[in-house]
Write a protein that binds this DNA or RNA. Structure first.
Lengths: 362, 362
DNA sequence: TTGAAAGCGCTAACAC
DNA sequence: GTGTTAGCGCTTTCAA
């Protein structure tokens, strides 16, 4: 039976098979089919097999819209990242999807691209399509926070990564950026530096940037006076939100032409650091002999710069996994439990960009 | 009836407002509300205002699931990229979203991460949630192609970017990688090189990689014999699919230790090139004096390497825009029109990594 | 163990 | 201009 292969050539745009097609094809009730595909309730072995066979043959896949509408669950979650061209986002997403897909959830990524409007549009779309939850790793903004809090009045679970959102039902995962910033600064101090610049945020905007606060604190703890002139933000200061290689180049350039220049630069992230390194070479100075450079994030490329870049690794994949687990726990399990906060250690990765006494091929 | 507002304080997890709440609240028919929010059909000014007011007050947003189920249109499209940590993907997505969001479509990103399983899962999720279309920029695989072709039997529109998919209703956008590869190779030849290596694909796997074929053809056209020993793929050859900085490092290393080493390296992409540059420095050689290096893609960082990297720019944002336009044209308009193929020019960007006679600060 | 009925939230098609 | 009816594809509830 079922010589379906007789179709003349390409079937011209079939409508997707529905549960009723399966029911009709097997002669059982729609409900029985539903029970089979959901493995819920009792179905005799015989019927089950018949149904499964038809599901195969007719290539049936449940319509997620109908299912979601009825169940009030879509088994889909949204991931909101600031920016896609970013190893951090990639690893985070990797960790998240690893956990989610194992549990039968699909996930969709949305970017904010540094725009609150875009971020809201992304969240709105997620919400309107009734995602069961969202993992939000965008930078904090007032508008963004308000919007997220608004969504929380409804049945959307949220976990934030690397940022805050003050709400009793929002879990949080982050790396200890403060400690990372502290450690890398202290490393520079141990290497004998006392004029250490921070490139990537302006001092007034730094409060929300933990790695910067770690820098400030490390200076203080080591008795080095804080010098605001050694802190440079991007030309167009996007608040605590962002910093690129261009910003690093431009910021370092400014700081190098200042009266008394630093002997070390701690850049907000590895890309900023790479821009700064370029500015340093541009000025005819050597790294690390004239100026040491450190970054943050340990992006894969940081091992390949000239010289390789000292940086701070955060366990990004793990953050993704943890965030996904927290989210699933709330969705599938206890929606009312107390908020949880996971903070992972960072690791200082010392490379040649801050070490003078290692022989360099250069 | 319907004194729903009696809830004591913070509505403890309100259910989202539905169209019926609005109807009840304003005393009009559900259908009238629908007409107002969709701006379809005739509604008197008076009613319209009343409804809009209630929509505001009750913070109503249509349920995308219900709407999609009924309309058979979700106004959502999926973007499938191989890998997220990639300026190419970022720019592509930027271009796509720019067009889509202006037309009221939301878009969701999915990654294949070099895994056919993952790619299928992403497409399956897209399809099950009834996305109206997909823009697919993953690398070609047999399994992937089959899966895509299967989906095309149903009502999912597909546009591919930077790859092929042979189907009469699938449009395609790409950059002219062949010409780009040809141009950069010819540039190296003009700079006096005759032993030019290609790093990033093994010769047997190169057929699907147009930029590599451009390289081969440029050699031929200039009377330079092709030497298979000068072509190195990644250690674990993932077919035409991928190449990282690690691959570049490792591949260049191999080629540099060969008996007669090349005087120039054309790397499959900028990251591969950066890895190769590192290997060259590692070997105590100078760029470009001992070995010239060129990449492909013009990622933002390529301007910041030491020395800055000669590369080929493809207009990625534009590719995204064009792809989105083609997709919308099919979804909203003519689903049966002939397939369209847009091929954009690449641009050679010459920087110091291939030019000896420019003074370098190094 | 199976099935029938009702309805999730919305809109197309048709009355009025 | 506005309202009513029916139904998208599925699952929950209840009856058999």
């Amino acid at each position: 039976m079922a010589e379906k292969q007789k179709t003349h050539r390409q079937p011209k745009l079939s409508r997707p098979t529905t549960i009723r097609d399966i029911a009709a094809h097997t002669g059982v009730a729609v409900m029985t089919v539903s029970r089979v595909i959901n493995e819920s309730g009792y179905v005799s072995q015989e019927m089950r097999e018949k149904v499964l066979k038809a599901v195969q043959e007719l290539n049936y896949h449940p319509n997620g819209l109908a299912r979601g509408l009825k169940r009030r669950r879509t088994q889909a979650i949204g991931i909101l990242v600031p920016d896609i061209a970013n190893p951090f986002a990639a690893e985070l997403v990797g960790g998240i999807q690893e956990v989610l897909s194992a549990r039968g959830y699909s996930s969709f990524i949305s970017t904010s691209d540094r725009s609150t409007t875009r971020e809201e549009a992304g969240l709105r779309a997620l919400f309107d399509h009734r995602a069961d939850g969202a993992i939000v790793a965008t930078r904090e903004t007032k508008a963004g926070n308000d919007f997220l809090l608004g969504l929380l009045n409804y049945d959307l679970q949220i976990v934030v990564v690397g940022r805050e959102l003050n709400h009793p039902r929002v879990d949080r995962v982050t790396a200890d950026h403060f400690k990372g910033g502290y450690d890398v600064t202290e490393h520079l101090i141990k290497m004998g530096h006392r004029r250490i610049a921070f490139v990537g945020v302006s001092a007034p905007n730094g409060a929300g940037l933990h790695r910067y606060r770690g820098y400030v604190e490390a200076l203080r703890a080591n008795g080095i006076p804080f010098d605001e002139k050694l802190v440079v933000g991007p030309k167009v200061d996007a608040g605590p939100g962002f910093s690129t290689q261009d910003d690093g180049y431009e910021g370092a350039k400014r700081i190098l032409s200042a009266k008394s220049r630093p002997t070390a630069i701690f850049a907000r992230n590895d890309f900023t650091a790479m821009g700064a390194m370029y500015a340093i070479r541009d000025a005819g100075l050597a790294i690390p002999d004239d100026i040491a450079v450190a970054g943050f994030d340990n992006v894969p490329l940081s091992a390949y710069t000239a010289p390789p870049l000292t940086t701070v690794a955060q366990r990004t994949v793990l953050q993704g996994r943890e965030a996904a687990l927290l989210l699933l726990d709330r969705i599938d399990g206890n929606r009312q439990r107390e908020r949880r906060n996971i903070c992972l250690d960072c690791e200082l990765i010392v490379r040649q960009s801050t070490i003078k006494d290692i022989a360099r091929t250069d």
